[in-house]
Design a protein around this nucleic acid. Structure first.
Lengths: 345, 345
DNA sequence: TGTTAGCACTCGCGCATCGTGAGTGCTAAA
DNA sequence: TTTAGCACTCACGATGCGCGAGTGCTAACA
C-alpha cells in the first residue's frame, strides 16, 4: 500500500495530466511533459506496477493509462497539491461576490451561479439552516377582516411569515390576545420545547379565535422542523455537457434528470457528517446515478448559528484541487457576507 | 395561396406523420398509411407543387419531404385537428392536478412539472400576476426593537411582506402611527395613484421613524411594478434530449443554457398580447436561439384579477395539437384551483 | 540490480470504397 | 388527369485498410 516516491510522482503526473486532457497518458508523454529524467521504458515498468496495484487502468491494450477510482481516491488524499488560484481568478471571484443581495435565498442562488461558472461544473446547494433556533419574536397581525399574518423571527435572524385565511371574522382584540399568549409561551424557545400541556393552555387562550390555532401551530412546526426539506438550489447543470464523459446523450440525460430532482440534491448534501470539505468519488456516493461521478461538498457554519452546504458535482475526472480552493474561498466570503447580513453591520 | 382540398389532405398527412416519426415521408408511405386512393406518382406531383409553394422541403434529393416552417404555420392555422386526449390521459392529468398546495409559487411549479411530464417537452411559466392591483390592507408591525415587518394584501388577495431592518430603534407608537398614515393614503389605491404631494405628506407623517420611509416606499413600488420580473419557472428542460432534433450535444447545450436564464423565459412569455393561446414557430420567435423551435403560450386570466402564462417549448416538430389540448385543460383546471384558493372556498 | 534500447505486436481511429434501397422526376401511355 | 415505367440520385451502413500511439518483452548496459 505504501508507494515509493517515484511511483507517487508518476501517478500524480498521470492524474494531473488526465484531469486536464481527458485522454489516456502514455509513457513517452510523461517523460516529455513532466520533467522526469527516466526513459519511457522505465516509466512503463512503473506503470505496470501501478496498474497491478489498482491505481491505474488501461482503456485498451494500445492506449495509455488512466486513473482508476482507487487512483483518484489516493490522489485526493495524498497526492493532490493545493491549487493556486491566479490573481485574476481570485479577483474575479471576489468581484462576483460583491452581492447587493439582502435576502438569503437570492444569495445562495447567486453563489451557486458564481461557483458553477467558475468551476465549469454543476453546483448544488442548500440554504443555510439555523442550528437549534428559538423564537425571537412572534406576532399575529390582522390583515383584513378574514385573514391574519403570522410573523416569526428566529434567533438566527431569519424572518418567516405566512398569511392565514381565518375563515370567519375575528375581532382585532381576540387576535391581539392570542398573539400575546404566543409570545408568552414561545419567546426564547422552540415549539419543540413545549409540552402537550403548554399547547393545551395555548389553545385555551385562543378560544376567541380558535380557527387560527391549528394553522399557527402547523406553521410553527413547519418552520422549525429540522428534517424539513430546506430549500435546495442547483446551477450550471448544463455544464456537464462541456465534459467529454457526457458526450453520450443518454448519460447526460440521466445526470440532468437526477440533479433536477430536489430530493436527490437534498440527499447528496445530507451526509457530509460535519466535515468541512468532503470528497466522494465513484462508489463512495450512495446513488447509483453518481457512481461515475465525483462530488465535493463544503459544509459551512456561520457563527455557530447557521449551517449550510454547497457542493460541486461532475465526472470522476474533475479538477478537485481547483474546486477545493474555490469552495474554501467562497465559503469564507459567504461567512463574511451572511454575518454582515444578519448580525449587525 | 389557396390550396385545393387534395393538397390540404396530403400536406396534413405529411405533417401529422412527420410530427410522429421525425422522418421524411415519401409518396408511397402517404398512400399506404393514410387512406388516399391515388397512386404514388400523383402524390409526387402534388408534393412537387407543395414544395414549390414553400410548404414542404427536401432534406436531399432522394429522401421524402418534410414540412417547412411555412408548412407548420399553415398547419397550426388551418390544418390541425383537435387532439382527443384519451380517457386515461384526461384522468391522469386530472389526478395529477389534485394538488394539496395552498401557495401560489408551489402551485405553478407543480403545474409546470405536470405539463412537462405530460407533453414530454420543456415547460416555462410565470406566476400569476394581479391586474391593476390596489392595496386592500397595509400594516407595519414592530418585530424586534430594530426591525419591522411590512405586510400588504392586494386586491387580488396576494399577500406580500418583507422585514425591514430599521437601523435604529423606534417606539411602537411611531411605527403604529406611520402604519395608520400608510393605510389612510393607500387603501383602495395603488402606489402609482399617489402624487408627489401625497408622498411628501406621507414622509411628514413618518417623521418619527424616518428611516423606515424609503424602504417602505421602495417595497411598495417593487410589489406593484408591472414590469418587475415576476417569478418564472421552468421544468422538463431535460425533455429536449428526448427529441432527435437535439441529439446534437451543442444544440442541446445551447437550448438548455438559454432556458436556464430566467430573463429569457420572462421574455418568451411577455409577448403573448393577451391572446388565449399563441403559437410561434421558428422565425416568429424573437430569439435567435429559438429559430428552430416551436413555442406554445397559454395566457390565462383568473376572474379578471390574476394573469399568468404557461408555455411549452420544443423543436419545431412538435405535437402542437396535443399541446394545445393539454394546455387548455390545464389552464381550465388552474382557474378552478386558484379561484378556490383565493376567493372563498 | 536497476535502467534502457530495440522490436514485434495490438488495436482504436479515420478514411475510402461500395452496394443497397428508398425516393425522385420525367416521359409516355391509358 | 392519372398512372406505369424507368433512369437517376444520394444518404447510410458495412467492409476493409493503413497509420500511429502505445505496450510488453528481451537482451544489453551501467
Amino acid at each position: 500500500m505504501d508507494l515509493g516516491d517515484r511511483k507517487k510522482q508518476i501517478l500524480r503526473a498521470i492524474i494531473d495530466d488526465y484531469i486536464q486532457t481527458a485522454e489516456p497518458i502514455g509513457s513517452r508523454t510523461i517523460v516529455e511533459k513532466h520533467g522526469i529524467n527516466l526513459s519511457p521504458a522505465t516509466i512503463r515498468n512503473e506503470m505496470a506496477d501501478l496498474e497491478e496495484m489498482g491505481y491505474l487502468e488501461k482503456p485498451h491494450t494500445s492506449a495509455g493509462r488512466i486513473p482508476s477510482e482507487l487512483g483518484y481516491r489516493f490522489y485526493v488524499k495524498s497526492l493532490m497539491r493545493e491549487w493556486q488560484l491566479s490573481l485574476e481568478e481570485t479577483n474575479s471571484l471576489n468581484q462576483a461576490m460583491q452581492l447587493r443581495i439582502n435576502e438569503l435565498d437570492g444569495l445562495i442562488a447567486e453563489v451557486s451561479n458564481i461557483v458553477s461558472r467558475f468551476t465549469d461544473y454543476t453546483v448544488v446547494a442548500t440554504a443555510p439552516r439555523a442550528v437549534n433556533p428559538t423564537v425571537k419574536s412572534i406576532k399575529l397581525l390582522p390583515l383584513t377582516q378574514r385573514s391574519v399574518l403570522l410573523a416569526v423571527m428566529t434567533s438566527a435572524g431569519v424572518v418567516k411569515n405566512a398569511g392565514i385565511e381565518a375563515g370567519t371574522a375575528y375581532s382585532d382584540e381576540a387576535v391581539y390576545n392570542f398573539s400575546k399568549s404566543l409570545q408568552a409561551a414561545l419567546l426564547g424557545k422552540s415549539p419543540y420545547d413545549l409540552t402537550e400541556d403548554d399547547f393545551a393552555a395555548l389553545k385555551n387562550h385562543a378560544a376567541d379565535c380558535i380557527m387560527l390555532y391549528s394553522p399557527v401551530v402547523a406553521y410553527l412546526f413547519e418552520w422549525f422542523d429540522e428534517d424539513a426539506k430546506t430549500n435546495v438550489y442547483s446551477d450550471g447543470v448544463v455544464n456537464i455537457l462541456n465534459h467529454p464523459e457526457y458526450r453520450n446523450i443518454d448519460k447526460a440525460k440521466q445526470f440532468i434528470s437526477f440533479i433536477g430532482n430536489r430530493d436527490n440534491i437534498h440527499s447528496i448534501m445530507s451526509d457530509g457528517d460535519g466535515e468541512h470539505i468532503k470528497i466522494k468519488i465513484g462508489d463512495e456516493n450512495k446513488f447509483e446515478e453518481l457512481k461515475d461521478c465525483g462530488v465535493v461538498i463544503s459544509n459551512y457554519d456561520i457563527g455557530g448559528n447557521l449551517r449550510g452546504s454547497i457542493g460541486v458535482v461532475g465526472p470522476m475526472r474533475m479538477n478537485y484541487s481547483k474546486i477545493v480552493s474555490s469552495l474554501e474561498l467562497i465559503t469564507e466570503r459567504l461567512d463574511l457576507i451572511i454575518n454582515k447580513m444578519f448580525f449587525n453591520e
